[in-house]
């Protein structure tokens, strides 16, 4: 009974919209007209053959391959530094967490300024090394910059989860390991990392899920270009549903996006569980 407020909330704000969206995905609704027709699987077929949907699919995995290692390893390093601090752990944790609170639009505008042709950074690169880099004009660099921005934003948040994990490792585990001769790098690799499994699990799943919902950064910085290199699922859904008013089609892409996200998270979950089981986590 105590769970009923949450259940009611979920029913109204998650289940009903989900069912409604699934229904709309089979219609040609244009978002504003009261009239629409049932079109069967036409939207899904169209999405399957769409170049921009295909791009969104692959771009997400490209972001995932860049972002997840950077964010997870970076967050772990930050957490290790914070835990090793003799004082002011809380202060530093909060300081690294602050980018998480920053507006995506504001940080994208700042990055745009830093990477602009006549920014001090680019002028210095040109005058010192003769390097004239078109940061957002190159497909690889544009994607990497967005992945780095996301990592900067979320690393502090993920680091907090790792700090909590590090703090919860019992001291006697380290003592037992020391008596068995595990010190330094060995201690870190064979004791700390496996003991951080719950944090790794949470952070990785959060990071993977995040990659399927990127919108603000490419919307502000690149518009999905160059050559669809930063075109994400959310950009495609927004453009179809709100710019072209193909809400039924946009919803079908959102449904596909949900299925792909769910399947990808399941795969990552399985990989993590296999790794956890090796170290005694069931």
């Amino acid at each position: 009974m105590f769970a009923s407020p949450y259940l009611v909330y979920s029913l109204i704000f998650f289940l009903f919209p989900l069912l409604w969206a699934t229904y709309l995905a089979f219609t040609n609704w244009n978002l504003i007209s009261p009239d629409y027709e049932f079109v069967g699987v036409q939207n899904f077929v169209q999405a399957f053959f769409s170049e921009s949907v295909r791009a969104a699919f692959f771009v997400t995995y490209k972001f995932l391959a860049m972002f997840v290692p950077i964010a997870v390893i970076g967050a772990l390093c930050l957490a290790l530094i914070i835990s090793a601090l003799p004082r002011f752990k809380g202060l530093f944790s909060v300081a690294f967490f602050l980018p998480y609170l920053a507006s995506g639009v504001a940080s994208a505008i700042v990055v745009n300024g830093i990477l602009s042709y006549n920014s001090p950074f680019n002028i210095w690169l040109r005058s010192t090394f003769g390097l004239d880099i078109n940061w957002l004009g190159s497909p690889v660099l544009a994607a990497l910059i967005i992945a780095l921005m996301m990592a900067w934003k979320f690393m502090g948040y993920y680091a907090l989860l790792f700090v909590a994990g590090l703090e919860s490792i019992p001291k006697d585990v380290y003592e037992a390991a020391r008596m068995d001769g595990a010190v330094g790098w060995k201690k870190f690799w064979y004791v700390t990392i496996p003991m951080l499994y719950p944090s790794f699990y949470t952070v990785t799943i959060l990071a993977v899920g995040l990659m399927f919902g990127i919108f603000t950064e490419p919307y502000v910085l690149t518009g999905g270009g160059p050559d669809l290199a930063t075109h994400t699922w959310q950009l495609e859904i927004y453009q179809q549903a709100f710019e072209r008013l193909h809400a039924g089609y946009g919803t079908s892409i959102a449904v596909i996006n949900s299925i792909v996200t769910f399947a990808s998270i399941l795969v990552f979950r399985k990989i993590l569980e296999v790794w956890g089981a090796k170290h005694g986590w069931e």
Partner: peptide, 14 residues
């Protein structure tokens, strides 16, 4: 044509 993000190119004479 300069097709890169530039701050105030016209005003600065870029």
């Amino acid at each position: 044509l300069l097709t890169r993000q530039v701050t105030d190119p016209f005003e600065t004479g870029q």
